[in-house]
Design a protein around this nucleic acid. Sequence first.
RNA 1: GCGGAAGGCCGGAUGGCCGCGACGUCGGGCAACCGGUGUCGAGGAAAGUCCGGACUCCAAAAAGUAACGGUGCCGGGUAACGCCCGGGCAGGGCAACCUGACGGAAAGCGCCACAGAAAUGAAACCGCCAACGGAGAGGUCGGGCAACCGAAACCGCCCGCGGGCAAGGGUGAAACGGUGGGGUAAGAGCCCACCGCGCCGCUGGCAACAGCGGCGGCAUGGCAAGCCCCACCGGGAGCAAUGCCAAAUAGGGAUCGCGUGUCGCAAGACAGGGCCGCUUUUGCCCCAGCAGAUCCGGGUUGGCAGCUAGAGCCUGCCGGGCAACCGGCGGGCAAGAGGAAUGGUCAUCGAACCGGAGCGAUUCGGGGAACAGAAUCCGGCUUACAGGCCUUCCGCGCAU
RNA 2: GCUGCUGUAGCUCAGGGGUAGAGCACUCCCUUGGUAAGGGAGAGGUCCGGAGUUCAAAUCUCCGCAGCAGCA
Length: 137
Amino acid sequence: MTPPQASPPGTPASGETLPAVSLRLETLKKRADFQRAARARRVAMTGFILQMYKRPDGDAQGMRVGYTCSKKVGNAVARNRAKRRLREAARLVLTHQGRDGVDYVLIGRRDHTATLPFDKLRADLETALRKLHGPAR
RNA sequence: GCGGAAGGCCGGAUGGCCGCGACGUCGGGCAACCGGUGUCGAGGAAAGUCCGGACUCCAAAAAGUAACGGUGCCGGGUAACGCCCGGGCAGGGCAACCUGACGGAAAGCGCCACAGAAAUGAAACCGCCAACGGAGAGGUCGGGCAACCGAAACCGCCCGCGGGCAAGGGUGAAACGGUGGGGUAAGAGCCCACCGCGCCGCUGGCAACAGCGGCGGCAUGGCAAGCCCCACCGGGAGCAAUGCCAAAUAGGGAUCGCGUGUCGCAAGACAGGGCCGCUUUUGCCCCAGCAGAUCCGGGUUGGCAGCUAGAGCCUGCCGGGCAACCGGCGGGCAAGAGGAAUGGUCAUCGAACCGGAGCGAUUCGGGGAACAGAAUCCGGCUUACAGGCCUUCCGCGCAU
RNA sequence: GCUGCUGUAGCUCAGGGGUAGAGCACUCCCUUGGUAAGGGAGAGGUCCGGAGUUCAAAUCUCCGCAGCAGCA
């Protein structure tokens, strides 16, 4: 999985100083990445649970996002809809406020992810990001 | 107008902005890729995975057969089906129409609890009947004025013995044809009529079957979604199949099987052995310290193909057919993801539903769409589903 | 996606056409100074749901609904 591409040792691996630059979103696909994020810091909101894993310095650059909607969320329609709304929220928020070198995982919740007003969902994501970015040091 | 039956269709619409997936194309870049642009992008059930196929692998195929499984009125349609169409029969409905796992119980085995006399070649609990024997309280007969005594031909009762009968009773889901009449000691298909049943013949039909006639004289209780018999069909596994590339690990261990002939220098040939349950035929493999089978352990949880044009769907005309469907000519449509694309938002219009006004047509405000998301692909079935539209038909009521 | 298996008392399971059972747990009583163990008595069921076959279905058949497992 993800062979290390050995970024130049001189590069400062801090994406934390450039929040205004819009970053490309890469989708998380490997099971191992999800499991690693699941052990990391998290914050729960009404519409979702956000997990954030800071990859070690020297790893590949770029921000990655994963989405998880298990069978607990509902049937196939509810799961897909929840995933799409999370994806749209991530596109609007994380491209501006996300950080480089970080894996985010958004987990859908039963009933709320698919029905919450989108503005609320988006605002919650911003709040959750502040909580995770703030005290983490 | 009210109530109902059948078949078919739709199942939110239009537009703007920002995004997503696939393919094509243009530009930039050595390349990874980036940017622009065009086209296409969920369903009637995409679902359940219940049937049938295509396709792939198990080495391939044919014939027969055993076991196992499936189907089950008849005929047709189809690549095939447990599907569809038409017909028959049975049941339901006033009708339109609907429903039906609908072969065989006189090949065999098995089961039929409880109750009941008896649960299937009948038997006989209560009961019915005549004869015989007994008894002698009643009627009766004889005697006597009467109390009473006696008799046993008749009527009825009681007891006994061996017979005849199965109509009636009661039990049960079911009791060895039903109803009526004759008949008899009492009864009984014992006889007769009708109905049912069975057999035979004729007619109609490809057939299931129907109609008519004759005969039999009741023999044939139910269950085959119990075993079974008969007819027909079926090899197994599944796209996470399967093939290829790359990476990685210790090419590890255990069990089973063969242990090998003749000719030939050899190649090979012939025996022999093995290979989808078995047999046969064709075919393929083996002859070595090995190759084979099964299992355990270890590694990888990457990429590409399979992967979307096929018995395809829709439709116009013509032809065949009652129809399902088939044939011909023409037109149109047709997603291909892979942690898995259809989303977000705004505007306009909007069905159900809720509230107000009105006798009502209607109108004002609120509200903002059911079940549900392609995962190899087709044909069906089944299940879920707010609401709406169209066509045909039936019954009742009113008018003519 | 594909393929299997299982649903019976609070829990673990029997029963495979004829009145629903066992063990543990629960309630009450006995025993003990008290508790456990032991003994006795008792309560507890839409047999996952709906149709069908049958006189009769937890059992046989069909259609659903849940839960669990396996397969790259």
